[in-house]
Design a binder for these strands. Sequence first.
DNA 1: CGTCACATTGATGCCTCTCAAAGCTTGTGG
DNA 2: CCACAAGCTTTGAGAGGCATCAATGTGACG
Lengths: 210, 210
Amino acid sequence: MRTPTKKSTDLRSAAHLDLEDAFGIHPKAIEVAAGAHVFRQRSATVGVFKLLSGKVRLVRTTAGGEQATMHTARPGELFAEASLFAARYHCDAEAVEPSRLLLYPKTALQRAMQERPDLLWAFAGEMAHRIQSLRSRLEVQRTRSARERVLQFLRLHSDAAGLWQQEGTLKHLADELGLTHESLYRTLADLERDGEIDRMVGRLRLNRRA
Amino acid sequence: MRTPTKKSTDLRSAAHLDLEDAFGIHPKAIEVAAGAHVFRQRSATVGVFKLLSGKVRLVRTTAGGEQATMHTARPGELFAEASLFAARYHCDAEAVEPSRLLLYPKTALQRAMQERPDLLWAFAGEMAHRIQSLRSRLEVQRTRSARERVLQFLRLHSDAAGLWQQEGTLKHLADELGLTHESLYRTLADLERDGEIDRMVGRLRLNRRA
DNA sequence: CGTCACATTGATGCCTCTCAAAGCTTGTGG
DNA sequence: CCACAAGCTTTGAGAGGCATCAATGTGACG
């Protein structure tokens, strides 16, 4: 039997693991129409999903029939990780737009992780990383001021030179920041006028001041 | 050698595991004064912390010397989980108030999880749960309206009867919701006047409408 | 009985949302 | 090659809502 990993340093390279590569698991491609459900509350868990394109809402329906959105998954995102640890889903997953996803079967993942604790370790590391990321996003959202929110975001996501590579549109950034796109455009214009940032095509630079 | 857990159902009871109980690890009690640092960016990771009382800020200092708060830990909270998977901290932990904490040594946790993959499994499950929780908090914070924010929170956290047991003060709730306490008080008063909720000492009830 | 923190309500101003319109870029089809 | 459509980007005007400052009430605790 394979021994568990001995040193944590062995595992650091797996910080951003790819389930498919690391686990040798072949996911199942799934397409759903807008309004269709990927899974339902209380149905048996089948696995972890990765959203390739589209938009999927995770909604819990309360006893009174009201709906509370728990999360809105964005392309590239993994969701329903907790299904590995529970027998049933505890929310609905509803496609808001026509969406393509990958399903990583629970049984295959569980078997792989039982046989190879180092994979489980890598998976746990990935989740720890995601917790950090979520917490910092939460911290950014605590700020009311659009200006501070944008600056905080850039401080967290720019490299040593202050550069931030834009992925997707500014509308998407506005969405991630929890701002309307109008506010974001205005704020960026203000920041540039004040010399706090420079705007280039597809990237931003955060200017440091003494 | 102990075999890894065979069925996921075996592990569901460990959804909220207590590191000390489950791992048989004795944490080290630590006290820090306001302004003192629990650990520093780039210093070697020593373990996971649990905040008992006080307040601790996790701050990343950028190349330009600016500070970006990544997270503010609250009493009862576990933080620096990622230290298990990394050799060095990548942010500062600074006590904002005089604080008491527990340190769960990294080496002991790693050894325990290497010897008993079921503990690692439980730990991973706990983190998956926390990811869910963080995502739903993020979703609540996306809402601008104080009214909707409070209602969303109650829908997510009330039981089948619509009851929510208050823990701590309403000021703390306001903080969690990202509102000022004045706004929260006003919003609660409005909701009660409109019949959406009932207020009792130490609890709230969310009223359902047909 | 005094202090301290929480709870509550009032008045005011600013900031972001909202609605609106126009410029700009890209892609598509005739 | 041009015309048109669609989506992103940008700026404008107005309004509503939450933060802020302020004051008072209330309860716990020594």
